[in-house]
Design a protein around this nucleic acid. Structure first.
Length: 577
RNA sequence: UGGGGCGUCGCCAAGUGGUAAGGCACCGGACUUUGGAUCCGGUAUUCGCAGGUUCGAUCCCUGCCGCCCCAGCCA
């Protein structure tokens, strides 16, 4: 794929690749995106996807999609399906290079045998607790397992029996024989294989032993000829082990390079926390439009091109960081501004009666679909005596900077006429229920022949023709930039506890924004909106970008999600005064 | 206190010996049938701190401070 993938700026991984290429150390660039099918992809994964596929494309190489499925306990076909859909949605194509670590089990097993024969791996009978105990601590080196020096023959026999399923889970593991005194825990005889009498979603019950991440990932890279294996910072400590297996197995040398994972303000990006939001019902599901999952932002209406643009702008570095959601929203607005057709919809309607417009009459006015894209054409919008306008486009006692409607003031109705407000009708409690206005027939289309100007242009909808809309307005899911930051941190108490139970528990749930969604069922939209297809995106003029909900929208019941608001300088001016 | 990393504008992020790119945000102003878009302009004498080397340091050296990750038979 290549339609929108503009190369991002320079970053250290590109420099490394360019250097190796120039030095002749590598001939090609081959990367991979290696998700574990145990959850849904989120915007953080989008960064990795864009990086891996983007680099391959930029250097004329290839990028594989590989499911890192070496743990039968948590993985499911359902997840591989959603992952494939999400990567495709983002706009990337892995062609015929869809791989599975579970397809490499036979080869991995051979390699394990190889290490045993070389005296570099052994079967250990210690329990998990004992292994932990023998591993030592941050400051104390570990001790050798009593089984560390078994003979090659015995190891071979035992490992074969493990594979056959002769032993119960947890009773034995295969370990690499490296260095129990290493400062790096990953080198203290890491586990290569564990016994799991579980059914694997792809391999069924064929295997009783499963390789660990460390014994599967690098070798999978190597098998696929991956030159650059990009992963996040927490794997930096694993690199020596990654290299150790390559060296001792004498296989193709993939190179692991680590970069900082994405953090986004006002949301969480960890599988565990996202799962908690779903399971505890704080959101409606993985594809709730407030979720940072790819399925969530897709339903919210974020275009894939905007997500790609975002990923190219945030950079790739090794410093822990948290990107402001405002940047993502900027990318979304920029993309939608040029691609979304415009429509008029009134979210909080107030009735306007044009007193000098004949009762029972109506007409069709021409409206431009997208001023940024002439090819989007024009449409007809019906106009009649009674209209809906936005309640906050009228002020009874407007300040000088307010350009909209007020008693005695004239404004332009977009694509229609100039109207002047003559009378404000209120109910018993003083609430404004109706505005009586007059229009100037000479201003049809929005121009005054006498050249007079009006400062304000407001949107509207013909009451007789409009259709009711359910509009869902979304806001930040969390009130804080960093939801993990507890108030108590300021007082020197537990700032970032593991306790995220909420309700004063000091965790991220305490920072949930309880007004992150507002369901508005009073909105009125222009009739053409009835034909919107689920998933279709529009700009509701002066209000924001909206997307017909992919699940709940239908011709008979129009439901729109607000993707993002428009920039609102009037709101800023108001806030200041 | 063992090992591995990171600290450049409010948020990201280039630059890595020659005197601080860019984007977002923010603040002005122009233009405007979306207070949208667009367009101009502004915003780090300073690169965690302290020393040192040098004609010259964000880039080199030393020390310190701060933050992140690692003791799963998860990935």
């Amino acid at each position: 794929m290549s339609d929108h993938a503009e190369p991002s700026g320079s970053h250290f991984i590109k420099s490394i690749i360019a250097e190796e290429l120039a030095a002749g150390k590598r001939k090609v660039v081959h990367t991979r995106f290696p998700p574990e099918p145990n959850g849904y992809l989120h915007i953080g994964h989008a960064k990795a996807i864009c990086l891996n596929f983007g680099l391959a494309e930029e250097f004329g190489g290839r990028c594989n999609l590989r499911f890192d499925d070496s743990n039968p306990l948590t993985e499911r076909q359902e997840y591989v399906d959603s992952i494939r859909e999400d990567v495709r949605w983002l706009g990337f194509d892995w062609e015929d290079r869809e791989f599975y670590a579970s397809d490499y089990f036979e080869q991995l097993h051979e390699w394990a045998l190889d290490l045993i024969r070389k005296g570099k791996a052994y079967v250990d009978d210690l329990t998990a607790d004992e292994i932990r105990e023998y591993r030592g601590t941050l400051t104390r080196p570990g001790r050798d397992s009593p089984h560390r020096d078994r003979s090659i023959e015995e190891n071979l026999e035992l490992f074969e029996a493990m594979k056959r399923g002769d032993f119960p889970e947890g009773s034995k593991v295969l370990r690499a024989k490296i260095d129990m005194a290493s400062g790096n825990f990953n080198m203290r005889d890491p586990v290569m294989y564990r016994i799991l009498h579980a059914e694997h979603y792809r391999r069924g019950k064929e295997w009783a032993i499963y390789p660990t991440y460390d014994f599967a990932h690098g070798q999978s890279d190597s098998l696929e000829g991956v030159t650059y294996s990009l992963c996040t910072l927490e794997f930096e400590d694993h690199r020596p082990l990654y290299d150790w297996f390559i060296e001792n197995l004498e296989i193709f040398p993939s190179r692991q390079i680590e970069f900082a994972r994405l953090n986004l303000s006002h949301t969480v990006l960890s599988k565990r926390k996202l799962k908690k939001l779903v399971e505890e019902g704080h959101v409606s599901g993985w594809d709730d439009p407030r979720m940072p999952t790819l399925s969530g932002i897709r339903r919210r209406g974020y275009p894939p091109a905007a997500v790609r643009d975002f990923c190219n702008r945030i950079g790739v570095a090794k410093a822990d960081s948290r990107v402001d959601l405002a940047l993502l929203e900027h990318c979304v607005r920029q993309e939608l501004n040029r691609s979304a057709p415009r429509r008029m919809a009134v979210l909080d309607p107030i009735k306007v009666v044009i007193e000098n417009y004949p009762e029972g009459q109506s007409e069709e006015l021409e409206a431009i679909n997208n001023p940024e894209d002439e090819s989007a054409g024009k449409r007809k919008v019906p106009f009649s005596r009674e209209l809906w306008i936005e309640r906050d486009d009228f002020m009874e006692d407007p300040p000088k900077k307010f350009f909209r409607l007020g008693p005695g003031r004239e404004v332009r109705l977009r694509w229609a006429y100039f109207i002047t407000c003559n009378e404000v009708v209120k109910d018993e409690v003083g609430k404004i229920v109706e505005l009586h206005c007059s229009y100037d027939p000479e201003t049809r289309g929005g121009q005054a022949p006498d050249g007079r100007k009006v400062r304000g242009t407001i949107h509207w909808v013909s009451a007789e023709h409009s259709i009711p809309l359910e509009v869902r307005l979304y806001d930040h899911l969390f009130t804080k930039d960093d939801p993990d930051q507890s108030d108590r941190a300021d007082k020197g108490e537990a700032g970032k506890g593991e306790a995220d139970q909420g309700q004063g528990g000091g965790g991220f749930l305490d920072n949930l924004n309880h007004d992150s969604v507002t369901i508005n069922t009073n909105a009125q939209g222009e009739p053409s909106l009835a034909e919107a297809a689920p998933g279709q995106r529009f700009q509701f003029e002066r209000r924001g970008y909206f997307c017909a909900d992919s699940k709940d929208h239908s011709a008979g019941h129009a439901v729109f999600n607000r993707t993002v608001t428009l920039r609102d300088t009037w709101a800023k001016i108001q806030k200041r005064s």
